[in-house]
Structures are given as C-alpha cells and as structure tokens.
C-alpha cells in the first residue's frame, strides 16, 4: 500500500535456507518483473535518444516542458506540505483521542486509494466549478479553484492524504510517552513538549509520509485532468504533456519527458529508502 520500499527485517536464521523452490520462485519473479516492468521501461529509456543528446536536452528544456515540470513538482510540493500539516493532525487525533465516529474517519482516510482517480476527478471538478457546492461560495469571494493551478493542488491533496496519515499512525501509536512525561515533569509546557520532544521524534516518519505523498502526486493523471483546465504553461501537468506529445506524433518527445519523470521517480524511491532506514534507526 505505501509507496516506499518495504524495509525487510534481517533474517532470523543466519544459516542457509533449507527450503526448496528458490530457483522456481526467483526465476518466475525475475521473468515476470522483466517482462512486465523492466523491458518496457528499457524501451522507454532507449526511445528518445534517436534525437541525439542535444535533441533530448532541447526537448526537455523547452519552455512548455519546463513549465509543466514546474507545475507538477510545485503543485505536488504544496499539496504534500498541506498534507503534512493536516495529515499529521488527522493521524494525531486518530491515535491519541477518542471521539464519536473515529473508526469511520479512520476507514475513510483510505478513500483516495480505493476511489478510481477518474471518479475523484469528475467529483472534484463538479464540486469546485463555479456552480458547485464549494465553487459557488468561493466564487462569491472571488476565488477560483477549478481550471486553475489551485485545482491541481486540490486534486493532489486528495490523492496524497492517506500516505501521510498511514505512515504516521503506527509510529505515533508506538511513540514512547516516557519522554513526554519527563519533559512535562521538568516543567515544559505541552506546546514545548510537542515542539522539542514529539516533533523531532516523528520528523523522519513525517518526512517519509510527505515524500510518498509528493511522489504519488507528481505522476498523478486521472484526478487532475478533469479539474486542471490544462492550459499550456499554466495548468498543464507533465503526464498530460506526455499524452499531448504522443497525440502530436511526437513519440521521441513523449518518451523524453517520460524518461525525466522516470528518473525523478527512481531517485525519489532511492531517497525514500534511505529516509526509511533513517526513520527506523531513530525509532
């Protein structure tokens, strides 16, 4: 469910495994992985070099591509930041407090995982358009969400929320309360305890969750295109630009932008692994 690599605990037994089936299981794993993921991605990585390096570089530094990358990364960052704050509050409330409807809220947090992105897209755009439940009152205040970059952010907040909450929850539940009590005994206010004791302990986990929300948001397509407005240079996200380039017969260009996104997500995955190792060591 979560996006970052699974941290595998070290095997309990040091000796060689006496179990059969390694060859079969490993063989099938590598075959399937290669067939479905690695070979197709290799095809993608090879494709844009028909342009030559300078052509590739020109392709990915074109103003429209840069604007799309800026929007995708910028909006994802803003959405992840919003989620880090509100996701933290939701996780905190779910772990620490009791209130009516808590289980319902807890279950609902995963809605963005389960709801198809296209459904989320049309629902959000119906909600935030000028004649929608939220769009209309905001419109009276002169605020436009749908069909602007803010619409992109709203969709990405929706997509990213569960990553922050679900990453924080177990760690927050495990958090040792002794140090909180110690801080309180030493005369710290509750807020000081939070800022000086709780937050530093949770920081690596919070960062991991936020990074996951960010990584997921960068590649998101379905929920965004319905609400974004899709204006080049303004509200056109990178995945949409790939589709448009594909539709313009520009295969190499589409693949070039795709390679950039792939590289970024791979780097992110590695960074997340490191982050999780750090988080685990801090716990």
């Amino acid at each position: 469910m979560s996006l970052a690599a699974t941290a595998v605990p070290p095997p309990r037994i040091r000796s060689r495994s006496a179990l059969p089936g390694f060859g079969l299981a490993m063989g099938f794993t590598l075959f399937y992985l290669g067939l479905i993921v690695l070979i197709p991605l290799a095809a993608l990585i090879i494709r844009p070099w028909s342009l030559g390096f300078s052509g590739f570089w020109a392709e990915i530094t074109a103003p429209r591509v840069l604007a799309a990358l800026r929007l995708s990364f910028g909006a994802s960052a803003v959405a992840a930041a919003v989620n880090s704050v509100f996701g933290f509050i939701v996780a905190w409330v779910l772990v620490r407090y009791r209130f009516p409807g808590k289980r319902l809220i807890d279950a609902l947090v995963d809605l963005p995982f389960a709801l198809p992105t296209a459904v989320a897209g049309i629902a959000l755009s119906a909600l935030y358009a000028g004649n929608g439940w939220i769009g209309r009152p905001l419109g009276h205040l002169g605020i436009k969400i749908a069909y602007t970059p803010y619409g992109v952010i709203v969709a990405l907040i929706f997509i990213g929320l569960p990553f922050v909450v679900r990453t924080l929850q177990p760690v927050l539940a495990d958090l040792n309360r002794d140090s909180e009590e110690a801080a309180a005994t030493l005369g710290a206010t509750r807020f000081q305890t939070f800022r000086r004791v709780i937050l530093p302990m949770l920081a690596p986990t919070l960062l991991t969750g936020t990074a996951m929300a960010f990584a997921r948001a960068v590649g998101e397509y379905g929920s965004v295109i319905f609400i974004a407005g899709n204006l080049p240079m303004v509200s056109e996200i990178t995945p949409l630009l790939i589709i448009i380039k594909l539709q313009e017969y520009d295969y190499a260009g589409a693949a070039a932008v795709g390679v950039v996104m792939l590289a970024v997500s791979f780097i992110f995955l590695l960074a997340l692994n490191a982050l999780q190792a750090w988080a685990a060591s801090r716990r």
Partner: peptide, 13 residues
C-alpha cells in the same frame, strides 16, 4: 483560459 484536448471537452468546460 482553458485549452482542452478535444472540442467536446471545450464545450463541457
């Protein structure tokens, strides 16, 4: 303000 990919999308907008 909006550049949809198809005519129908534009009409919807």
């Amino acid at each position: 303000p909006v550049l949809d990919t198809g005519a129908r999308g534009a009409t919807t907008t």
